[in-house]
């Protein structure tokens, strides 16, 4: 059991979360220009914390899935539930690290934004798994960011709602619905222990 848990690379995940939490909070008010939308319609930007959030999602997602490969299919434990509990713990840790850093640097508002972004990316990762994209579930958050950074602007130069990751507004309903529905699907996946669209029981190895 201990061996199986260690394969999740807790220390790697924790280190990445701490570094990303600090970097994301310190650079929280920086806006990075996006060339793909800016060139023709004026400057577009994305909040800098998006990048550390993405790194956390890739590392956490990859590490969690790598560990699942070492668990037997016959395990009486719900492996997926363990994995998703760890993902939730990652989100919590990001909030704690970011809030603490925020207190030290005198800017606590970024913690919520960073936590939303990490939660959003991890929800996309878990939903991808729930829908059967097992091997490259960590690729889905990156593809989402890419598509958002390329196609988010409409002809009036406004950012479309579905590209909430580029939006600092914490009240963006698209973000709220994405995280809420994603969590719901993830819970179904946890209870079912296999892809919601069919497929073999348990994660693919």
């Amino acid at each position: 059991m201990k061996w199986a848990l260690n394969t999740r690379h807790y220390w790697l995940i924790a280190s990445v979360v701490i570094v990303a939490g600090v970097v994301g909070t310190v650079s929280g008010n920086v806006d990075l220009p996006i060339p793909f939308m800016s060139a023709l319609l004026g400057t577009s930007t994305m909040p800098a914390p998006v990048i550390p959030s993405l790194v956390v999602a890739i590392v956490a997602g990859g590490s969690i899935q790598s560990a699942e490969m070492l668990w037997t299919f016959a395990s009486v434990r719900n492996v997926v539930a363990h994995s998703m509990a760890l993902a939730a713990a990652v989100v919590l840790l990001v909030f704690v690290v970011s809030s603490t850093t925020g207190i030290l640097v005198g800017d606590s508002a970024v913690a919520v934004l960073l936590t939303r972004d990490v939660a959003g990316f991890l929800v996309l990762w878990s939903v991808s798994r729930a829908l059967g994209i097992e091997r490259f579930a960590s690729l889905v958050p990156v593809v989402y960011l890419l598509i958002a950074a390329i196609f988010a602007r409409n002809s009036l130069g406004q950012t479309r709602g579905w590209a909430w990751i580029l939006d600092r507004d914490l009240g963006n309903l698209w973000a709220v619905y994405t995280i809420f529905l994603g969590t719901l699907l993830t819970l179904l996946f946890v209870l079912r222990r296999r892809s919601l669209l069919g497929g073999a029981k348990g994660p693919k190895v």
Partner: peptide
């Protein structure tokens, strides 16, 4: 890296290089 990390990081790095070298 293992493909599980390498593939998303390759895509992210390509994007970051193209997107942010520009500015």
């Amino acid at each position: 890296l293992r493909p599980r990390f390498a593939v998303p990081f390759a895509l992210a790095l390509s994007y970051l290089w193209l997107g942010f070298a520009w500015s």
